[in-house]
Structure formats: C-alpha cells, structure tokens
Design a protein around this nucleic acid. Sequence first.
DNA 1: GTGAAAGCGCTAACAA
DNA 2: TTGTTAGCGCTTTCAC
Lengths: 330, 330
Amino acid sequence: MARRDRPATMEDVASLAGVSRALVSIVYRDAPGASEATRARVLAAGTKLGYRPDHRARLLGRTRTRLLGVTFDVRQPFHGDLVESLYTAAESAGYELALSAVAPTRDEPRAIQSLLDYRCEALILLGPMLAPSALASLAADQPVIVVARKVSAAGVDVVRTDDTAGARLATEHLIGLGHTEIAHIDGARSPGATDRRASYRTTMRRAGLTPLVIPAGPTENDGALAAKQLLDTHPTVTAVFTFNDRSAVGFLDTVRQSRQVPTELSVIGYDDTTIAALSHINLTTIAQNTPALADQALQQAHSRTTTSDHTTPTPIAPRLVRRTTTGPRL
Amino acid sequence: MARRDRPATMEDVASLAGVSRALVSIVYRDAPGASEATRARVLAAGTKLGYRPDHRARLLGRTRTRLLGVTFDVRQPFHGDLVESLYTAAESAGYELALSAVAPTRDEPRAIQSLLDYRCEALILLGPMLAPSALASLAADQPVIVVARKVSAAGVDVVRTDDTAGARLATEHLIGLGHTEIAHIDGARSPGATDRRASYRTTMRRAGLTPLVIPAGPTENDGALAAKQLLDTHPTVTAVFTFNDRSAVGFLDTVRQSRQVPTELSVIGYDDTTIAALSHINLTTIAQNTPALADQALQQAHSRTTTSDHTTPTPIAPRLVRRTTTGPRL
DNA sequence: GTGAAAGCGCTAACAA
DNA sequence: TTGTTAGCGCTTTCAC
C-alpha cells in the first residue's frame, strides 16, 4: 500500500466539495453559517479524503486554545487514575489535554517547560513537589491548578481530597471495631501526610485513646520497615492506619509472616488504588473521589481562563471502602 | 503579580535585539548564519523577555515536525518505565514526544486519533491490543512502531525483547539450581506469553524434564489463583517461572501462607518492574532492557521517516536479575 | 551576515 | 448563506 505523502488539507476538502475553505472551517467547527445541504456535502468530501483538521494550525489561529497541560508521575498508579478521569472531564468541558510525564530522569520543571512551549491555557499539576514560590511564579503567567497536594501559593488553585475527613473516617472505623491500641504509619513529607497524621491524632484523643505514630514514608518499602519496627516495639497494637495503600501493602507483606489479618491485626490503607481491590490483597481503605477531583480541576481551569466567577475549591469528601483487612478486636 | 497577557513572541525579541525575525529564528534553531556577537545579543534579549519559541507554530511551518506520538497504558508500570526511556532516547535523537494515554474509559483508537491530529511523524505504540489489520492500515499513513508486542502487520516495525531467550534464561536458572519439577504460570493471550510458554517447554524438554503449564494471566489476581491451583494439584513442584512480575507478586502472596520462599519453593518473575526490586519482595526476575527498547524504537522511527536505510529490528536480549526468591533445591 | 517575503493549515472578522 | 482577506508565530528560500 502506498503511503499518502501528505494528509488531506482543508483546501483539498473545499475544492472537492466545490466551496471555499471558510465554509469547510465552519462545518468542521460546527459553527452556524452553513446550510444543511452544504454541510452534508462538505462532510462527505472530508470523509472521502480522510480529512482531519490539523490540530496545531487550529490552535495557532485561535484566541483560546482550550488546551490544558497536565503533568503526572509515571510511577504513581493514583496519577494514572487521575489522568483517566481528567480525560473524561476535559472532554465534557470541551478541552484538550497535553500530557507531560515526570520520571526519575525527567524532573518537574522539565515536564512543565515542554507544556509551556505548547501554549497551554492552564497547567494542571498532579502532586507536584515544586516549592510554593516556584508555583506562584508559574501562576504569574498562566493559571495553575495543583491536584492532590495541599500548598498555599499566590494565584494557585488547590484541588484535593479532604484528608482530615479521610483520616478521621479511617481512625473512627478502627475505633468502631473496638480497637484501642491503634497506630498510624506515617507518610513523612508526602502530599497529604501532615493532615492525615494530625487528624488521626485528634480523633484518637477525642476518643480518649493515645496516638502512636510510626515514622515511615509513601512506598511499599517504608510500610515494610515500619511493620518490623512496630512488631518489635509495640506488639500489643491491634489495628493500624497506614498513610497510603502502597505502604499498607508493604506493611501487610511483612506483618503476615507472624500475625493473622484481620483477626490479630487490622489494617486500613488510603487512596483505594487498583492494587487495594486485588482479591488477594482486598484492602480496606479510604477512597479518593477521582472523578470529582478531575471535575473540580477542570472547573477551576475553566473559571480562571474565562471571566466566569472564580470560587476557591473546597476539599472533596473521601469515603470508606470496607474490605477484608479490618475486623473487630477479639 | 500581574499576569502577562501574552507570552513574548519572536517579533518582540527581534525588535529588542534590533534584528530581523529571521535572525532570531536562526539563533534559536542553532542554525548557521549568525555571528557570535549577534547570537549573544539575540539570546540576551530572549532571556530578558522570557522568550520560548511557540512549539505549535514552529511545527506548522516546518516540513519535518520531528514529533513522535506515543500511546501507553496508565495501568502498566512497565509502560511508565518505557515512557521514561523514550523521553531520553527522543531527546538525544532530536525528537519531541506527544503522549496519549490508554485507559479503561479511553480506548486505543481514541488515543491514536488524538495523536494523528497533531500530525506526528510516526506512531510508537506500547503493547497495543489493536488487530494486525488495523495496525497495517494505520501504517499506510505514517510509520508505526509497535513496542513490546509481537505482531506481524504490513509496514509495521516491531521492537521487543527476545522472549524466547528470556524464558530460556529463567528456566535454565531454575534448572541450574537443581530443580526438576518446575512449573510455568502462563500469561494467556498477553503480549509475549506465547513465546515465553514455548521457550519454557523447549528448555524443559531439552533438559529431559517434563513441562507443566498452569493457565493464568498477566495480573496479580491471576498469579494468586494459579498459586492455589498449583499447591492443590502439584504439591511436589519446587520452582515456578511466572509470566511476569505482577503475577509473581500475586503468586508469592498466596504461596507464602503455606510455603517458605525460596527454601521450599523458588519463584522467578519477568520484566524487572520497580515492584520486583522492593526490598520486601526482592524478586528474582528477567529484566527487559528498557533503554535499548526505547533506542531501537527511535531508530526505527527515524529511519522510516528519512531516507536512511531501514533495517528490521532484532529482538533485544534480556538478562537475569538474581534476587532472593530463588535458591537451590534442598 | 542579514533581511524581505512567502507560506504552513487553520480561524475569524467582514463583505458580498 | 457564502466567499474574501487577514492574520496566528514560526521556518525557509532567496536576494542583498
């Protein structure tokens, strides 16, 4: 099969349909100003030629590009879920997405720069590690929406889950099951960790219980190490609330070598990532409402790029997902 | 801080530096035809204005866009690794990447279409599930490079790991440790599964051993289910080669409840994804050479889009990564 | 070494 | 309802 030397252009369609380029443009933008008959004729010609408007050219001539730049971390399953929801939200809001990945050898500034070169209307950053000052200076040039990280920077909108509510939900779930010695496996400096830790402490104290925070981090490894430490130093603990699902998985892996879950030890995670739902893990966890986060991010981007009135986003409520790693204290 | 109403344009830089736009273009493209002095002056002006060339406009005017479209699956950690390597390879080859995600609610044709609208020079598809006929018809319009899936379709280049060698490596590793009853947890219809299964069988027979294939699939769940079945029906097996790391993890999770690894049972995975290296998993596995795959993909894209002579890619050699889930038969 | 001018494929304001 | 005409911000050819 011979490779076409160049994709069909608007001009090609116009001449085939016997109309001007402007008409073709109107038809393909679904803009008013073309009769049904012409519309059909143009569309037929376009289909015949396999015509698809050139996106770059289209953006170039337009005042509003309706292009949103998104940075995400390839190693974060949660970011994958968010990206998916963002596509859905973007489509229904009439926006396009430009993706730029962050990875060990490709840092955030890098990923952002490449987005800027595409003249995105706004930047949606998933769990960025950038300093607030850097975020603020970015926001000076175009709207910046930070998702899943609580930062306060001038002109930056923050879309996130209400982690205080989430941690309360998790802790109260364990308390409700009759547990009294409940530990929290900490997330260190990860996005959300501060709120979850504080809320865990508050909820424990309010119930007349003593909080116990084990320093750890956001990875499976951190959870595994914390497990060893907890079993050694606090063997009487009967329930654990981990920073996230990943640390929960590492924690479980280690702890199961000497304890039965949930009969001897209950474990609850956070995020409800795909891994939590796997049948052999079946982790009780706190689910972030990804579609709602995505919708809100798009709403922010939209209101910031238009004159429509802008409202500060409110944190989104998480919900408890009961599975089989938590149970009553025996 | 006031938001700049529009990014600096080439015109702005030109007038600040007191030269023509063409000069600015030359300088920013690193093209010959400008004196050192002018170059410095232009660059200074550009920096002062925070100028960055508009990528869309740049591509529009150019004959070659040097833009490569990449589709990947957000749920595949291995794709994340590949994307990272592709960025590196693209940069050194002077190409740009346009990413398009595949997800449960966003299918492959969809992801590909959006790439086509950007007039990418070539398409790099990571583990696509598209039918060979669909791939071939795509390849009629622009070069298509399929990564990590063995397909044969007209005009489509396939860049992949030598799975026959990989499975042999895995099987021989277990045989070398003295195991004789070695099972393979199958990958069903996943990319690579056929080769790995066949090579496992051949290697076993050559060593005078009887192959045992347990039907499963590519996910943690599949591995977990296969583990149950294996323990029930073939309790004398002392070593297992799983289709990939994910199924290995599910397998391990289940099997560890009744067996010691590696003393009673050895397990080897495939892919060397990030999860395999986690200290609490520490999975012996077959590593795919991601950077080499990415380099080869870029090389193919390059030779297909230029007149440089095109060679059919050769499968890339994997290597054994010894960790702690395999050990001698006791 | 430098600049003028045409054009990439589209959008948009306006005239017919 | 339709066509004309200017751009959008850059690259590129060709004179100077």
